[in-house]
Design a protein around this nucleic acid. Structure first.
Length: 592
RNA sequence: CGGAGCGUAGCGCAGCUUGGUAGCGCACUUGUCUGGGGGACAAGGGGUCGCAGGUUCAAAUCCUGUCGUUCCGACCA
């Protein structure tokens, strides 16, 4: 391709609404243009990248035995009503009516559609297992679209769905997909991690996310230094070591802590490490009473001061809850927000509670005194507070019912890996893929079954496997860029090689040499961008670096006298001089 | 949905406080010079100042409404 016929549309100014590097660079390099909030057009240069990501994905899906289909983006409400998601999905489902006032939505995902397809097309166990996939535009009416195509309202996704008779068969396909995903991200040339994930609202048991590692990632992921354990922080756990607890040595003492409300403030004020301060959270938990009526109950959660509550874990144990308001804290605990702690026996307050196990193992700790401006220090659970664990006759923390000590916190750097090998470290990741074992959630609701070997009707078991194609492009940039622009991995660069002739319009023999080089490289099968614009060298280099071409060749009169061209790697600071005759072989070696 | 900004040339912005001829940089067009890291000079084209209403002799500027958009929060494959 020649730049004279392939406008680069690069811009010098950074758009004011682009916060992260990939968004800024995608605009600056002329990959995308914004149409409206969360809606982007792909320019020719950007589309070349997108297509390469699609191509790699498609190749690996085919290798994994998946069959490509294409399902409508516009979907009838009836199918969504069958699974109940028409009601449950919330406002991010883009709903609309047709001219006959019938309800439709723009598909954010295609479980309903594929399940409908499968129940009509699959009749016999002999057709199973089977995996369908598509590369389709999805819609999600995000509350706040941002970061360019990273979180947009319309995006391109590869989604695959598998159908099975048995859990074993699902596991087999899941494993095939797991390795297909590894192959895809390997080929894309990205630094990524497969992590154990929470399966979220889609449902199902086993689930892995694939994250591209990048500082700006929206997700925190935890992985072990000593094993291949990796999990989203939402579901990462730490090893709970059984070790003898230190005996209490202090007695409770009330101390004045005016204006010190947060853990950080109390820690600094008293000169006590956050690990020695109890964090007490007050929530209103929604429960169903004996009559099946829903009501809210005041509840306390205890965490170590340096730990954060993991709401997903807590909700799994407690169901739905919200944080209590200051007024609710005062009325239930007779305490003041910012100074709350476990109630003393003499308060005669019976308040249900749950602690993170690490909080229960604290001794001689600091906590709020349930009185504005005061904390306690030297606290110990059984010495000072009512734990109302009636079965626990010897009143020891070790024998406290497990019901009270659960895992409800986020892991932190330095925690022991749950497999006992190594320690947890944290990194930021961009979720670009997610695979689930769905089970029968959709097939049951939609009566998608087949006749099994025994001649009996059986509901199919499903798996689903997604890759955010357009997000991958942004993630690749987020991970691979420098001060000059994008640094594309070889396999997804819009062009592999750029030819930059110096003052070509002034030298006929240079023009001939550059044209010949271009013809040779194209013939050798490279994606080549020939910069035949009449622009100055600096301008040309700046453009090539901004759009991230990984390899470029500088053709000048100087080198031509010696029969050479200069080669520059996008990431290298110096040029290499290569004999013109060797250049095809040289590049082949670089691009394998 | 709550809070806070911003809408002026294709892009980035100034002008608004204190009402009176529509401005700057980049980009674009033409020419001359220049020619290995976004070059210089000269000339030029391009605007319903988001939209509607109001105040005024006069509104980009003041007032009201409205639409769009961005950021923070809540929410979320």
């Amino acid at each position: 391709m020649r730049t004279s016929q392939f406008p680069l549309n690069t811009v010098k100014d950074t758009p004011s609404d682009a916060e992260i590097a990939s968004h800024q660079l995608m605009i600056r390099a002329g990959l995308i243009r914004k149409l409206a909030a969360g809606l982007y057009s792909w320019l020719p240069l950007g589309l070349r990248v997108l297509r390469k990501v699609e191509k790699i994905t498609r190749e690996e899906m085919e290798k994994a035995g998946a069959l490509e289909v294409l399902m409508p983006a516009l979907q009838p409400a009836e199918l969504w009503q069958e699974t109940g998601r028409w009601q449950h999905y919330g406002p991010e489902l883009a709903r609309l009516k047709d001219r006959h006032e019938r309800d439709f939505c723009l598909g954010p995902t295609h479980e309903e559609i594929i399940t409908d397809l499968a129940r009509h097309e699959l009749k016999s166990y002999k057709q199973l297992p089977i995996t369908y996939y598509q590369i389709q535009t999805k819609f999600r009416d995000e509350i706040r679209p941002r970061f360019g195509v990273m979180r947009s309202r319309e995006f391109i996704m590869k989604d695959a769905y598998s159908f099975h008779l048995t859990q074993e068969s699902l596991q087999e396909t899941y494993d095939v997909m797991y390795s297909a995903y590894n192959n895809i991200f390997d080929k894309l040339g990205l630094n990524y991690r497969a992590v154990i994930a929470d399966s979220g609202s889609i449902g199902g048991a086993v689930s892995h996310e694939f994250h591209v590692l990048a500082e700006s990632g929206e997700d925190a992921i935890a992985f072990s230094t000593g094993s291949d354990y990796a999990a989203n922080v939402e579901s990462a756990t730490a090893l709970r070591e059984k070790q003898p607890l230190p005996k209490p040595t202090e007695t409770r003492e009330k101390i004045l802590t005016p204006g010190q409300k947060t853990i950080a403030e109390v820690s600094a004020f008293l000169g006590v490490a956050p690990q020695k301060i109890l964090k007490t959270l007050a929530i209103m938990r929604t429960i169903k009473d004996a009559l099946g009526e829903e009501r809210e109950v005041f509840w306390l959660l205890y965490l170590r001061g340096d730990h954060e509550l993991n709401e997903i874990k807590a909700r799994k144990l407690l169901g739905d809850f919200r944080f209590a308001t200051d007024d609710e804290i005062e009325s239930h605990l007779k305490g003041r927000a910012g100074y709350i702690g476990p109630p003393l026996p003499e308060s005669h307050l019976i308040i249900p509670w749950l602690a993170d196990w690490s909080a229960i193992e604290m001794t001689d700790f600091v906590c709020g005194a349930n009185e504005a401006g005061y904390h306690f220090k030297g606290c110990n659970w059984f010495n000072d507070f009512i734990l109302f664990d009636l079965e626990n006759f010897d009143h020891s923390i070790e024998h406290l019912s497990e019901e009270y000590k659960k895992d409800i916190r986020n892991v932190v750097e330095g925690d022991k890996s749950p497999d006992g090998k190594g320690e947890i470290t944290l990194a930021r990741g961009i979720e670009v893929g997610h695979i689930f074992q769905l089970g029968t959630k959709y097939s049951e609701a939609m009566k998608a079954g087949i006749i099994n070997e025994g001649g009996k009707y059986q509901t199919m078991i499903m798996g689903c496997y997604g890759i955010g194609i357009s997000r991958v492009v942004a993630a690749a940039i987020e991970q691979n860029h420098d001060a000059h622009g994008i640094v594309w991995p070889n396999n997804i660069a819009p062009f592999q090689v750029a030819i930059c002739p110096m003052n070509m319009h002034k030298s006929e023999r240079l023009k001939e040499a550059a044209e010949q080089l271009y013809a040779d490289l194209v013939a050798a099968g490279f994606d080549v961008l020939f910069d035949d614009r009449k622009v100055r060298a600096g301008f040309m280099f700046a453009d090539m670096e901004l759009i991230g071409i990984p390899h470029y060749l500088i053709v000048g009169d100087r080198g031509l006298d010696a029969g050479t061209v200069e080669y520059k790697d996008r990431t290298a600071s110096d040029n290499e001089v290569i004999p013109l005759a060797d250049i095809v072989e040289f590049l082949k070696a670089k691009l394998v």
